[in-house]
Design a protein around this nucleic acid. Structure first.
Lengths: 213, 213
DNA sequence: ATTATCTATAGATCTATAGATAATGC
DNA sequence: ATTATCTATAGATCTATAGATAATGC
């Protein structure tokens, strides 16, 4: 279970000794909480509802986490884990003939499309996390952005795009990351006018144009 | 007071007859609430704290609004009003010699820089609004994006940029809007590497590149 | 004996309102 | 008389835990 290696699972203490059980129960908690948080938001979801949806009592819930915020942290970290895994899988399946930047953009935007609600959740509720855990979530975000920076560097090295300053390259990478999120938080507008494939096509063209001054 | 003409002030009923007084008290409520919401978030701010910061009692507060959500709606609408006013003022002062698209981008990004926390607040708390008012807030967002669409159309008409399909033009306009927000919600990274002037320069160049296929 | 789970509830809020009081205008 | 404001609180939650019970392993 890759989740065992995640920061969040290590950060949060538990009363229960059996690590395998902790693993399973926390997965139940996260699955239940994600759905509820998406539906009603973090603050309007009660710990009782999470326990009920996970299939055990409120008392047991607090054997696996120490607070409601702990649950939010587990949720945010699990979402980032799933995004990163989704991208890796998509890239392994990818053609390897195309432009490597276009490929990573495509993989990313497809993950954003699939994980629409989850990405929105992170946008809306990261602020509700204790400060030290906000930092971990932002580091996850930086790690994803790093993939774009690397793809850009690769392209530059191959001479496929003109040389960009490190500052410009970073900014383009962040633009790509945010263009993915934009598909989720402007969906109310975008999905009325474009399919995800339209969106990928247009935005990929725009991003490649950015790099050709 | 331009705020009287806003949707929100008309949507929310009050017990108090004197419209001038309603106007003033609601301004007090909004000013107090904005600060508190930015600091602690909507859900962790209590109506009592808002009343106290506004300078009257909890009982009086509820003469001017019917619920805590009403206050959030007033806040979101006031923020958009201030953004739109800020852009208009900046554009009136602008040189009128430069590229009109670059000018509107500059005006917008400076407003985003100044209203950093307020824009973040809208991102995080719009979800806590009743559905019918979420719609009004999104319409405000569309209205701002419309300014970019119009500037792009103007440039195309003047022949300064190649012809873009209506779909592409809309997408570029949304990209501009989101690049402004990005300055607020990725500030933890961006502000470490760029000043707002760097950011304006780089992003303006990128956006103009987008339009040159 | 130890570990995991459950029930019942302490304790702490928080929103919204009812009813009393003060201020204003005829 | 009417309008605006205040105080006090009803009523409804919700988180987190203490202590009792059930399940597991020696």
């Amino acid at each position: 279970m890759y989740n065992a290696h995640r920061q969040a699972t290590r950060d949060i203490p538990t009363q229960v000794k059996n690590q395998d059980l902790v693993q399973r129960r926390r997965r139940q908690i996260v699955d239940a909480a994600v759905e509820l948080f998406i539906q009603k938001g973090f603050h309007k979801t009660t710990t009782r509802q999470i326990a009920a949806a996970a299939g055990f009592s409120i008392g047991s819930l607090y054997e696996y986490v120490a607070s409601k915020e702990d649950i939010l942290y587990l949720v945010c970290d699990a979402i980032h884990a799933e995004m990163e895994q989704g991208m890796s899988e998509a890239l392994q399946r990818a053609s390897r003939e195309d432009n490597p930047l276009a490929e990573v953009i495509r993989a990313y935007l497809l993950v954003c499309d699939r994980m629409n609600d989850h990405i929105l959740l992170i946008y809306q509720e990261t602020q509700s996390l204790p400060h030290k855990w906000q930092k971990v979530v932002l580091e996850n975000e930086v790690r994803i952005t790093g993939r774009f920076t690397r793809a850009l560097a690769q392209l530059t090295a191959a001479g496929d795009i003109p040389h960009l300053s490190a500052a410009s390259m970073d900014l383009v990478a962040h633009n790509i990351a945010v263009i993915g999120h934009m598909w989720t938080f402007r969906r109310w507008f975008l999905a009325r006018h474009y399919t995800i494939e339209d969106y990928i096509r247009h935005q990929t063209a725009f991003i490649l144009n950015m790099c050709h001054p």
